[in-house]
Amino acid sequence: MIATDTFARFGRRMAATQGCPYLVIAETPNPIRQLDADALRVRAEAMLPTVVDGLTLPPDEIERRMQDFARGQIRPEGVVRSSTAV
C-alpha cells in the first residue's frame, strides 16, 4: 500500500480487519496534492525501497520485521479514544 502518513496507521488497521496485519505500507508525509510533478517524483523515489521490499521479501521475513510495529499500530496500548489519530 502507498499512503500518506496521516492514513498509514488507519490503513494498517483496515488491512488487519481483512486478515493482512503485516501489509507493507510505503509512507510519505501528508499532504501531497499541492506537489508538482518533480516534487512528487522525489517522494515516490523515497518510497521505492519499501515498495521493492513488499514485492520481493518472503512473507515470513516481512512478518518478522513488522510484528511489534504492526501490533502497536493496530492496538495502541491503553488508548481507547484520541482527538488526534492514533
Binding site: F7, F10, R13, M14, P76, V79, V80, R81, S82, S83, T84, A85, V86
Partner: peptide, 8 residues
C-alpha cells in the same frame, strides 16, 4: 468506529 482509531 471510534474517531481517530478506526474512524477517520
Amino acid at each position: 468506529a471510534l474517531p481517530g482509531v478506526y474512524s477517520k
